[in-house]
Design a protein around this nucleic acid. Structure first.
Lengths: 144, 144, 144, 144
DNA sequence: TTTT
DNA sequence: TTTT
């Protein structure tokens, strides 16, 4: 009943801002769409075709708050998590929504950093350093 | 236009047989459900809870045919691929179905091998050796 | 200063028993060799060639103790961790030893389980269930 | 004898230029060091400590040539490959050198692109587009 | 619905 | 030997 692995690794760009939802009791959840692209050459026409894949990213609690604080539309991130398909009903019919529950994230660009112009590399050379790697342990100090 | 990654790694058990579909022109597709389990301890009751996650696995052409030949319900496999959400309409309403398009697979148990009793390790010691690792290159020889 | 990833995923077989070392203060470390195989067809002779790759696995504290208790030579495991190359000197010359520091592990077969005959699947159907998935959180309860 | 996985995923920065070596017969190999960083808080002093890990990246043939053409010291890349430890002898003593044989790579920044100022995003808006994702198939067209 |  |  175990001995299984459910792991997702994504590098993509935020298609929108992080949307937060706060629960009673102090828990919180953040959601944002992440785009990955697949490019290939058409066998028929020979032209380059790009398919966009949209992933529903879900983050929780401290990681959610760090995402909301530092990430914005267009930023690039590395995400590691698991696939989770939720089931719900509409008019008595089953529907499915697949999310990526992310536990670990690394920022590959952070436009929200005020002193930063275009890349996370630049950001590390000034005093306002956003966290670039976010660990799984929720009780840790902020990685500054 | 790229610089993105969409990667899924799963280890799980087949929930059903591989269902094949053959296209005109020689292409084929195989589908099967794969179960992964997540076990955790409830904070309320302290009991162990297991959630099952079902993944819609899609394989193509030679890999599909190897899967159909060697895999059966209950077998354990390692899968590597990408997430793909297809959109379709029902009564004018958008629906989404998420699949895992698998390119690489490793068999961790293969009940269909006739000389095999319980594990793929045993299978490698006789003459009827199923492939245990299936490469991405479709034009390769079978890995026997 | 960050924004980097160092991740290793291995599925292989233990080449020897887990060797434990206990430190003063209660910490412990376990080490064992893990074999992965790469099989390919020789372009010259056309015969199948198998290369064995040996990985120096290092586990710590609770995970080390679970490994020692349940794993034995020949068992198959899934390991997730990071690469770490240690530097040392012999006769004033630098030497390097590369280890895989494993944080997450899933047992894919466990011969040490007394009620088990050949695979972890069988093991889950009786009362003596070894842990098959070991989480990163050291403070967690044992996953029974 | 199989059913194993040997997979490495790295995101890091080039510590030096790509060094090429060409073989008779047309094959080529490229090598470069890649740095990943691990940052943690010391339990003793409470200060942030960064450890650098250096990986010996090895790429072959077309991928090697693309790396040499587009990558330079300091660039950030995503690498996917396998661990390979080579054995050699010095004065009759065995020595080991661990490499990462990389088959797939994604460029996360490319300073060598002449029209590019600081990031790969900018690069995609002009006519001199470096490849950002490099597939495994050696016989493919260049991903332009 | 959307990123680069 | 080195990157950010």
């Amino acid at each position: 009943m175990a001995g299984t692995i459910n792991k997702v690794i994504l590098i993509g760009h935020l298609g929108d801002e992080v949307k937060m939802h706060y629960f009673e009791g102090g828990n919180s959840i953040g959601r944002f769409p992440l785009a990955t692209n697949e490019t290939y050459t058409s066998r028929q026409t020979g032209e380059r075709i790009t398919n966009v894949e949209w992933h529903n990213i879900v983050v929780r609690n401290k990681l959610a708050e760090i995402c909301e604080k530092y990430l914005t539309k267009g930023d690039r991130v590395y995400c590691e998590g698991r696939i989770k398909t939720r089931q719900y009903e509409v008019d008595g019919q089953k529907r499915y929504a697949t999310e990526i529950q992310v536990q670990d994230m690394t920022f590959l660009s952070t436009k929200k950093d005020p002193n930063n112009t275009s890349s996370s590399e630049a950001a590390t050379q000034n005093n306002s350093i956003p966290p670039t790697s976010i660990a799984k342990e929720e009780d840790d100090d902020l990685p500054f």
